[in-house]
Every structure is written in C-alpha cells, then in structure tokens.
Design a protein around this nucleic acid. Sequence first.
DNA 1: TTGTATGCGTTATCAA
DNA 2: TTGATAACGCATACAA
Lengths: 335, 335
Amino acid sequence: MSEKTPLTMAEVAARAGVAESTVSRALADNPLVAEKTRLRIQKLAAELGYSINPVAQSLRSQKTRVVAVAVPLVHERSQPLSDPFMMGMVAQLADALAARGYSMLLSKVPVHEEDWIGRLLLPGRADGVILIGQSFEHASINAAARSGKAVVAWGAQLPAQVYASVGTDNRLGGELAASHLLQRGRRRIAFLGDERLPEVGQRYEGYSHALRQQGLIPDGGLLARTHFRAEDALDDIREFLSAHADIDGIVAASDVIANSAIRALAESGRGVPSDVAIVGYDDIELASYANPPLTTVRQDLAEGARLLVERVLSGETAVAQSVAMTPELIVRQSS
Amino acid sequence: MSEKTPLTMAEVAARAGVAESTVSRALADNPLVAEKTRLRIQKLAAELGYSINPVAQSLRSQKTRVVAVAVPLVHERSQPLSDPFMMGMVAQLADALAARGYSMLLSKVPVHEEDWIGRLLLPGRADGVILIGQSFEHASINAAARSGKAVVAWGAQLPAQVYASVGTDNRLGGELAASHLLQRGRRRIAFLGDERLPEVGQRYEGYSHALRQQGLIPDGGLLARTHFRAEDALDDIREFLSAHADIDGIVAASDVIANSAIRALAESGRGVPSDVAIVGYDDIELASYANPPLTTVRQDLAEGARLLVERVLSGETAVAQSVAMTPELIVRQSS
DNA sequence: TTGTATGCGTTATCAA
DNA sequence: TTGATAACGCATACAA
C-alpha cells in the first residue's frame, strides 16, 4: 500500500554484503559466481521483490528485448489495425513474443514517411521489426534488410526478395478455393480483392490456374478490386454485382470481404450458397459465426507468429529462411 | 544501404561545434538556448538523421514514454486478447497514445499472479497502466491505486473505487436495449452474459429496470451466464435455447454473444428478428456486417481511449476523474 | 546563453 | 571466485 522507492541493484548488493557486480552475475546465472553465492543472492532478490531495471539493462547491453510489430498503412482506406485479421495476428505475436520474454511495441506506420523501417529500429527502440503484410513496400523492406536490419514480414515470397517472409502458399490457397467451387459445379466465379497486393496477386494466380485446369478462360471482368475494410468492400461489391448479375461463385481475398459479399448478395435477394457460393480467406473467428458460416482457406496464424518471432530473434532474417506454410480449405455452409 | 553506426548526441554536438548539453537543450526546445542556435542544431540533427536514443533518455529522465496496456485474463475461457472488442480498444489506444508521443506495451496479464499491476509499473517498464476491463480484479486495482500507481481502467465505476475508470453508462445501455425490444412488442426477453462481471452486471440492472417499468417481473430464468468467446457462448446459448423455446427477444452483453445467438437461433430454425429480436452491445465492426446486421448499443471507443490516455498521462487517476459516457442505441435489422 | 561535470542502473573489463 | 571501475547516451545542476 505504501509508496516504496524502487530497489536498485546496489541496495540488493549492500543487503547481501557483496559487490554490485556479483549481484549482476548471480542474477544472470553467470557460472563465474559460486553456486552458493548465486542461490543466496537470487533468494534475497526474490524476497526483496527486486527485479532488474530494463531501461538500464538495455542501455548497457544495447539490447532492448523489444520487438516492434508494424502494420504498414498505405492510406486511410487500407487494411486498418482494427481489421480482424491484423488483430488476430497481433494477438498471436504478442503471445509468441511473451513466450520468449520479449515485449511488443505496436505501431501503425504511415509508409509514406521516409525511412519508416529504420525509425522503428533506432537504437533503443527495438531489436527487430515484424511487419504484418508487405503492402506495396517490398522495395523499402528490401533496402532495410540490405543495410543489416533485423526485418521479417508476414506475407508472400516475392522476386528479388532479401528479407525473410513467413506466410502461406497463396497460390495454392487461391487454387484450393477456386477448385472447390468448380467441383461444386460453379462456372462463373468472381475474384474479389486487390490483386496488386502481393499476397492477393498470388491468390488470384492460383484462382486463374484452377479455372484454366478446367478448360475455362479467366475473365478479367470477374476480377473486382475491392478494398479491405468491410464497409468499403461492401460498396465495391454492390457495384460489381449490379454489373455482373450472372455469377454463381465468389473467391474472396479475405473473410471480411467474403462477409461483405454475403451481405451484398442478401440485399439483392440472392441466396448463399443457393445462388452464389462463396469461399473466403484467413479463417478468422468471424468466418465460423458468419451467416451462413464461411467456407474459407485457413492460415495458421499461431504457427506463423511463432516462425516470425523465431527468425527475428535469432537474426536469421535472410530470404533463405522464408516459409510458405500450407493453407487448408475449411468447408462450411457458404459453398 | 550500408551499416551506419548509430549517431549519438555527442557526435551531433561535435559537428555543430557546441557542447552536448546545448544539443540536448536545443532538441528539447529548451528556451535557455538561443533561437538561432536551436534552429541550427535542429536542422543539423534532421539532416544527419539523428534522433534521441529513447533508452538513454528514459534512464536519465526516469520516464519511459511508454504506457502498458493490459488485458486481465482470468482463465482460459475469458475474453481473450483476440476478442474483437478488446482489439478495437487496443487499436484506439494505440492511436491515442501515438498522438501524444507514447508507445504502447501490450500485455496479457494472468491476474492470478501476485502483484500483477506492480510488475507492469516496474521502474523502466512503463509510466502508467491502462487496464481494459476490471474483470474480477477490482480489489487489486484499488490496492495498486492506493500505493500511488498511475492506473486507470476501462469499465464501470464501482462502489469504493479508488482509481479512475472510463466507460459508458452500462445501466443506461442495458435499459436502452431492453426498452427498444419492449417497444417492438417483445415480452419474453432473455439476457445473455455473465452478470457477475461489473459492466455486465450493470447492463443487467438496466435491463431489469426497463422490464419493471413495463410492469413485467424480470425472470431470473431468462438470465443466461454465457461465456465471452464466440464458440463457448454458442454452446451456452444452444443449451439455454433448448430450455427456453418461448423467448421472443434477447439482450446480449456483447455483439459477439449476440452473433452467436443469431447462429444458434438459425440452427434451431428460428428467424431473426421475425421470431426473436436481438440487441447486441459494443457496436464492433462485426455488428454492421452480421446477417442480419445487429441492432446494438454503441460505445464510443475512440473517445474512451482518448480519455483514458489523457488521465493516465496527466496523473489524474483518482476516482473523481471517472467518466461514464452516454451509450447510443443503433437500430439495424436484428430487431 | 553556453559549457562542464555528474549520475541515472546496469554490465563488462580488468585486477585482486 | 569476487570486487572496483568504466562506460552505455542522455539531461540537469552548477559554473562560466
């Protein structure tokens, strides 16, 4: 209850009757210090409720034990931090970092600012950076990686990539989604998403590939560049649907987009999956409790977060460490 | 592209031909330093791409410019960090803190650990703590506040409270929800949520009050203690519905719960709102794109985040600074 | 108005 | 095996 002035290592040393350096070594489990002394000091520190001041430790060791998690924001209408997928990823990263004794510095970075990655890695800010998504910033991430920064990204592996990326095989994911709809007998299948984004582009490729496998020719007119935010996507989809009343299937670049599609279809009196079958992407929580529950392509975010953290902390951030996990089709009632 | 050794203030001082202290003052806009000198140094620092090492600054000033945002976790099945409401709040807090030049240290805290609040405020960790929700920890938050910690919480104002809380008027919110359903002619209205949690308890009071105003007697049997997680809630609600087939309205303690209710009702062949009208709580993004879109009680999280940050940074964290914002009923198609 | 000197709490180097 | 000391990069009291 009372305001106690914070303990310093010096005070612990005084109480223990040893030098400060001995306390430092004892608490770091340094084998130089005698087992007996070490245990005695650790016990005392615990009793006193002492713990090392992280700021002083960081200044001295030049390590922060902090990892910056950054969500690149291209502009107002891009996928915001509050996007369910982003948030799911943030939560998983928070867990994975905590498991290794690291803290998470969460920032939205306006990528139009110069050297936005470097700023996150200022000495004393963070030991590494995890980017959620490459957005349109492949070049600047590469530049940061070349200058020796510990940067990894969730996303696609791209041509001429220098940094490590962790993600799922988006091409396969797109193919799984489209093949599933084809098997369900759908033939006029639209793709909803901005294919200029690396991951979405690869999903679109997979989608196109699946169509061609069936002897169908992908129709560019069935590609709708929707925004990522639910409301914006809804507007985009309404417009698209009014111009393409004949579609019977949808591959969406995210579950959020898929859900907006369900809603737009409902507004226009079309049933899901009776009139139009839909496959989403991500398998966020929303997917399972959408109405109808969404068939979707699952990405294992917990594993992805673990791999990202492992790489950024070990410094193994070269492109060779990239991973493309295998996505999984989860069939529910929307198809 | 090349690995440049990080600049220090000493090097900037050398290049500027002044003492380190002058650089320090210039960058801090300290009026002691001549306008001309100040501008010259600031310009030089910008050109060199220098910025202050936060760790050293923190050690020296004993301020971290970090605020810990903590999500109390009671047990496995309590509202997790990935909960949409939690994440929405986290996103708003990230913005509000960034606007004041602060970073956010995000942690899930297992509240069964002793002195969990104190640990977050260790010297060098954070200058203050914002708790998202009081959970069942009212007493320990009070204890921390009494010992002079800068602690504020999102949530309800409770009896014998010492710390400042910011939230909405939950009693009014519950009343708005129930009154709305009553106006729609519903009479058998269930309440879904764990009323032992402070905020939910107050919403339940408001709900009960509204029923009594209409001459109805709140039926304890219509209170279902559901979990917060969508899947768990779904199980709870299925069970509840099978025992209470006659309800015609639902007030849910969160939009997530409301959405699970929509799903459970759909499974049992009941329509929303035709058979059962539903009102959610929070107005998370999910609410607007649920099927049908949810009528709900909106809490202004952006404003709430701003108020929380303002209080924790100014140190005005006494209970007198508590705020209960006015919630707003958003009518959509679920009622 | 600017410069000098000291210390924030820790860890690493060196000496004992 | 332990202790004394210097340094990490910055901000401030004090001197000039």
